[in-house]
Design a protein around this nucleic acid. Sequence first.
DNA 1: ACATATTGATATAACGTTATATCATCGGTC
DNA 2: GACCGATGATATAACGTTATATCAATATGT
Lengths: 338, 338
Amino acid sequence: MAQKPKLQTVAQLAGVSLATVSQVLRGAGRISEETRKKVQLAAKQLNYVPDGRAAAMRSGQNREIGMVIHQIANPFNAEVISGVSDLLESEGYLVSVLDSRDDPAKEARNLEAFIRSARGGLLWVPAGEIHERALALLATHSMPTVTFLRKVVGASFDHVGIENTAATAKATHYLADLGHRNIAFFGGVGMGQVRKERIAGYVQTLQERGMPGPIVWESADTKLSGLDAAVALHDRHPEVTALVCNGDMVALGACLALPRLGLEAGKDISIIGFDDIADAAVATPSLTTLAVNPSMLGKKLARVLIDRIREPLMPQVCVTVPTQLIVRRTTGPLAACR
Amino acid sequence: MAQKPKLQTVAQLAGVSLATVSQVLRGAGRISEETRKKVQLAAKQLNYVPDGRAAAMRSGQNREIGMVIHQIANPFNAEVISGVSDLLESEGYLVSVLDSRDDPAKEARNLEAFIRSARGGLLWVPAGEIHERALALLATHSMPTVTFLRKVVGASFDHVGIENTAATAKATHYLADLGHRNIAFFGGVGMGQVRKERIAGYVQTLQERGMPGPIVWESADTKLSGLDAAVALHDRHPEVTALVCNGDMVALGACLALPRLGLEAGKDISIIGFDDIADAAVATPSLTTLAVNPSMLGKKLARVLIDRIREPLMPQVCVTVPTQLIVRRTTGPLAACR
DNA sequence: ACATATTGATATAACGTTATATCATCGGTC
DNA sequence: GACCGATGATATAACGTTATATCAATATGT
């Protein structure tokens, strides 16, 4: 239990120099099999773990990468994070995640924290508005950065996102095919990039097919908010028979409101969520939703970052992945009369 | 957009020495008001952010702390993490969380990763079994460590946990008072510390009140598993009219099974969860549960770690916080005849 | 006026690694 | 036996901070 072992300690025990130990442990340079064995044994005996800070500082590389996300508690995001971590850890990186809680000031602090510790790369799901200081800092301390889901307009970061417009267009078409004419877009707050794109797909389809509307209804991204908002929407627009939702959480919240409105999902009203979180399949009735495999998405995100780290001069990358409509029990044909 | 500014750059711009800049930025030493202003201006102009690695290395202090948790996706844990981060960030620390997925090998790798980067402190929710190597590494590289929820037997780490035994005893008494006699303990897997304590409270109460049983039924900690397990339990033990659950997730899973078993929660069967996650209040019917404020718990955890960091010689701390029974709609008096 | 504090600034040696250059030693070739 | 190219090991200077010691210059006390 003496002192924390360092390179020097291992070198003394093995009877070789500092440099030799360093080379053996990194698998670099030309070392004889004999001394290699000696050093490895000594390191094992001492429970030696190299100091990553010193290594990162000297080598100019940092195998810790930082992720700044607008909301960590969301189950969809949680799965994405798993996917990201899996791939990056298998490549020898370590991922730490900071939650901005949709607060630009906190987001700026998070980014600064990662700059301070000189992370080797940055994964960033921007909050609604972006703090001035955040961009300034990121510009001076240039580090490999990939934005995710939400794009920073006018910035040159790599990006991985979802085909939002195509997704909600698909959903709206599907509802129209079922005979629905009064369709609302439900959930989300403000006019962030993602919500704007999703609303665009919905509105476009409405116009293409000559349907009334659009009706866009706000709700924070929790079940409870979704419940309240759904009641309010029904109060104001009782004619609506279908909802294209901004996320599964609000969609499930809306489902919770139905009993007290005297409606049944899939019969009186059709609801389509977004994300396909675990609860969507298990809820009663199960939720029709727009799915994108979150762990695959996370892996793609990680892959782009790794490429950028390895190849700093690579041209800007921008990937969007398609969604899949998973039909379950909250959607059905428009009831003939009501 | 030149190069990343360092202490030297700021010093040149301000026309002072390295040491002076360092002192100004840390608020240490004796510096005249005039030069202080000059330095701060220069730092601001350059968007200077100090390199935390170098600072940590030289000063021997690290304001980054690591958290290793058995399962990050669990909503209760997510709220605890929020509480932890809030308090620690307000004290100038940065928290990074690693998920072990209940895998001792991954847990050991996570702990090693934090040792490698020489985090200033460690928050640790151990997985079921503990890897030999993890304890060996932690022993040689002694760092301030607080275990959470699950205790490591025979170790000298500080600990913050929940009064598990008292909680399930309270729940079981409550069900008995409602007239239930055939009560099962539902959920969890294996004989980890926490589950053992909770089962103990349940069994003790059964014996005290001369009731039949015990019946202990396993289920993994997801809604889906809970659903399946509940069906199986009802199949094997149809006489059971009440469940004390190991967590809200399995409790809600069990609730999902009821319709297809022809039972109604709060009437034919009573169910008590554990954790009071957000879904518990919003589910239909709402879930009676044993609550412990997760964010308060997280804050207490963070507080213990900070105390340990500040006062390394302080005697070992061990805190357990009580739970509160929140009665909602999944519990009710035993139906007279069935 | 002389020793003695006090103030404000600076020079410099760490912290634990890695990268580069250097240096022996040996076997082979002409 | 002088020269050369491998091979295997080592010495040493960074990386960007902070802590300590040092040093002028000014203020204080007798």
